[in-house]
Design a protein around this nucleic acid. Structure first.
Lengths: 340, 340
DNA sequence: GGCTGGCACTCGCACGGACTGAGTGCCAGA
DNA sequence: TCTGGCACTCAGTCCGTGCGAGTGCCAGCC
C-alpha cells in the first residue's frame, strides 16, 4: 500500500531530523524540510498511526515526535542505506593506523581513530586468546624456583605469568622446558592447548614432569581466565558532548564502561557472518545501557574472528555513518593484523 | 600574634566545612559548628582580612565564603595534619592488591583501589623504562627477515617491538643474537643501554653486525620513545559525582585524561624525597586542569623511584585523606614490585 | 477513500515582579 | 579587642501571565 510506504518515509525523516537537531520534530517542520509531497495535516495523521504502532512518541502533549527504540530499530533495519565513507575518511584510517609499532599501539590507535570518526566512545577488544595460536613460549628464570612464562601469540599479543615451582630448577631444566613447551604448543590454537597437556606430560622426561605440570597449568589458566580478555576504551570525552542525551547523569554509563566485563560481553558477541550488529536502548539488557546504543562488529584475519570492536553512544546517533565507520575500521585492523 | 593564629583556624574551618558541604560558608554557621570561642561578628572581621589577603572569596555579595586556590594551598601546607588510614582501609589495600598475577594486573588493581579509596579519578604510571633494568631479552623469528624483540624488565614490564632486518636470518643467527644481547644487556639499566651498543657492535662476530645493529637500534628506540611511558586511568565515573564542581563541562578534563601526555607529565614529576605532591587549580599550568587538583607521589622499590601515581579531582577535595591514601597505596605497590 | 485547510485546544516555557532569607559591613558600646 | 545590633544587598524561589509550537478533529474537496 502506498500508505505504508509514505509512513515509513515519515519515520525516516523524523529519525534524520531528530538525530541532527535533537528537537522533537513537528509535522510542519517535516513538511518544509522534506519533499514528502503531502501537507502537514496528512503527516499528522501518519504520525498518529506511527505513534499508535509504537515507533514514535511525544515527550509532552504539545511537542513534536521523537523516535522510540522500536522506531530506531525499524530505521536501522529497513530505512537506512549504507553510507560510504568519504575518500578523506578512508585516507585518515590508513594514515592513522599505519606506523603502529606493536599490538598495543595498533589497538590504541584504533580506539582513538574510531572515537574520532564517530564522535562516540570507542571500545576495542584484544584478540581473544582462545582463538589465537601460540607463536612462541618463553621461560625466564626469576629466582631459583620462580619462573616467568611469556606467551606470544600469532596475533602479536604477549602475555606473562609468574609460576612458582615446587623446587629449585637448574638452567638446563629451563632450557629443556622451553624446548619441550615450544615443541608441544607452537602453532597450536590456545583453545586446544588444554588437550595437549596429558600427552606432553607422558612424553616429558620424568625429572621435568613436575615442572611441566606447573607451567602448563599456568598456561591453561591464562587462557581460560576470562579476565584476560582485555579491552581498550577511548573517547569518553565524547560522552560529555552528548551528555544532554543522558538525563540523570553520565555516571552509570561511565561505570559500565569501567566495568569491563559488561562491555566485553556486548562487544564480543559479534555476528559470525561479519555483519555490523546494532543494539538499541533497552535491547542492551544491562540497565546502565538502557539509554545507549552499541554498534559492534568482529574483526579478524581472513575467516577467523579475533575479537570485537565498536562504539557506545546515545540512542540518538547517526546509525548509518557509525555503522560504516565501525565496519571500515574493523576491516582495516583485520588486514593490519594479518600482515604482522 | 593571637590574631593570626585564630584567623588560620577560621580558614581551616572554612576549608573543612566547604569541602564537606559544598556550600559557601557563613560566619554564623562557622561559629555554631566550630569551637572558635568568638562571636560571628568577630569571625566576620577575620574573614574580611582573609579575603583581602586572597585566601577566600565570595561567589556573590550575599553569600558565604569559599576558599581560593591560595587558601587551599595554605591549608595543605600548614593547616592539615596527617590523617592516618583506618585499619579497615589498610586491610583493604592488602586484600585488593594481593593475588595480582602480573604487572598489568597489579597496576589495574592499584588504579581501581585508589579510585575507590579517594572517590576520585586515579592514574598510575607504568614503571619508567629508563629507570628499569633488563631482566631478559628474547628474540622470536616471525618470518625470514622479521624478528620480534621482547624486552622483560626487572619490574615485570614486558615490551615488544617488531624489527625488520635487511636480509634473511637463520635460526642459528637468532640463537646467537639472543645470547649476545643477553650477555650485553641483562642486568643493565635501560638508561645505560645506549652506551653499550658500540661495545657490543665491536665484539659481535662480523656476520651478525648488521643484525645486532638493527636490533639494538630498536631496543634503544623503545626506551627513548617517551610514548612508551604508559599510563592507566581509572575511576572516571567518579567525575560524574563531582560534576557540580566543574561548572562548564567535564569535557576538557576528560580530554586531558585521554591525552595521556598531559597527565603523564603531572604524575611523573614526583618529589625525589618521596613526599606527596599537591598541585592546586591554577598551579597546574595546563588549562583544562585549572579547576582541578592533582595529588601525586612516586612509588618505587627501595631507593629507586619507578614511576608515579596519584589522583585528579576538583580543588574542593579532602586533601588530608587523599594524600594519606595516595601515599599508602604507593608504599604498598612499591613493596609488591620489589618482591616480584 | 484519501488529502487538505481551518480551527479550537493543550501545555511547556520564557518572562517579569514580588518575596524571602542568608549573609555581610559597619558602628556604637562593653 | 570583642560583641550585639542594624541596615543593606542580592541570589534563589515562587507565581501569574502570555506566547507559540504542535496537536487532534472535522468539514469539504479531489
Amino acid at each position: 500500500m502506498a500508505h505504508d510506504e509514505r509512513r515509513l518515509q515519515v519515520l525516516r525523516a523524523i529519525v534524520q531530523d531528530f538525530v541532527s537537531t535533537n528537537d522533537p520534530v513537528g509535522s510542519k517542520a517535516l513538511a518544509e524540510r522534506h519533499d514528502l509531497g503531502v501537507s502537514p495535516a496528512t503527516i499528522r495523521n501518519d504520525m498518529a498511526v506511527l505513534e499508535e504502532q509504537g515507533y514514535i512518541t511525544q515527550p509532552h502533549t504539545s511537542a513534536g515526535r521523537v523516535p522510540t527504540d522500536k522506531g530506531y530499530r525499524l530505521f536501522v533495519d529497513r530505512l537506512s542505506s549504507v553510507k560510504p565513507l568519504s575518500a578523506a575518511e578512508r585516507k585518515a584510517i590508513e594514515r592513522f593506523l599505519d606506523g603502529a609499532v606493536d599490538l598495543h599501539d595498533v589497538l590504541g590507535r584504533t580506539v582513538r581513530l574510531l572515537a574520532q570518526l564517530t564522535h562516540q566512545v570507542a571500545v576495542v577488544q584484544y584478540p581473544t586468546l582462545s582463538r589465537s595460536a601460540v607463536r612462541h613460549l618463553e621461560v625466564v628464570q626469576l629466582t631459583g624456583s620462580r619462573l616467568l612464562l611469556v606467551l606470544i601469540t600469532d596475533t602479536g599479543r604477549v602475555e606473562q605469568r609468574v609460576v612458582d615451582c615446587p623446587a629449585d630448577v637448574t638452567r638446563d631444566d629451563v632450557a629443556d622446558l622451553r624446548t619441550l613447551l615450544n615443541a608441544a604448543f607452537t602453532g597450536a590454537r590456545l583453545a586446544d592447548a588444554g588437550g595437549k597437556v596429558p600427552d606432553l606430560l607422558d612424553t616429558a622426561p620424568p625429572h621435568l614432569r613436575v615442572l611441566v605440570a606447573a607451567v602448563s597449568a599456568a598456561l591453561v589458566e591464562t587462557l581460560v581466565e576470562p579476565g584476560e580478555d582485555r579491552l581498550v576504551v577511548g573517547g569518553t570525552a565524547n560522552l560529555a558532548r552528548v551528555a544532554v542525551d543522558f538525563p540523570g547523569s553520565l555516571r552509570p554509563l561511565l561505570e559500565a564502561l569501567e566495568e569491563q566485563v559488561v562491555v566485553l560481553r556486548l562487544i564480543s558477541e559479534v555476528d559470525s557472518g561479519g555483519a555490523v550488529l546494532v543494539r538499541i536502548g533497552e535491547e542492551n539488557a544491562h540497565e546502565a545501557l538502557a539509554g545507549a546504543s552499541v554498534v559492534s562488529v568482529g574483526y579478524g584475519t581472513g575467516d577467523r574472528a579475533l575479537g570485537g570492536l565498536g562504539i557506545v553512544g546515545p540512542t540518538r546517533m547517526d546509525y548509518p555513518g557509525n555503522m560504516a565507520a565501525v565496519r571500515a575500521v574493523a576491516r582495516y585492523v583485520g588486514q593490519l593484523l594479518a600482515e604482522s
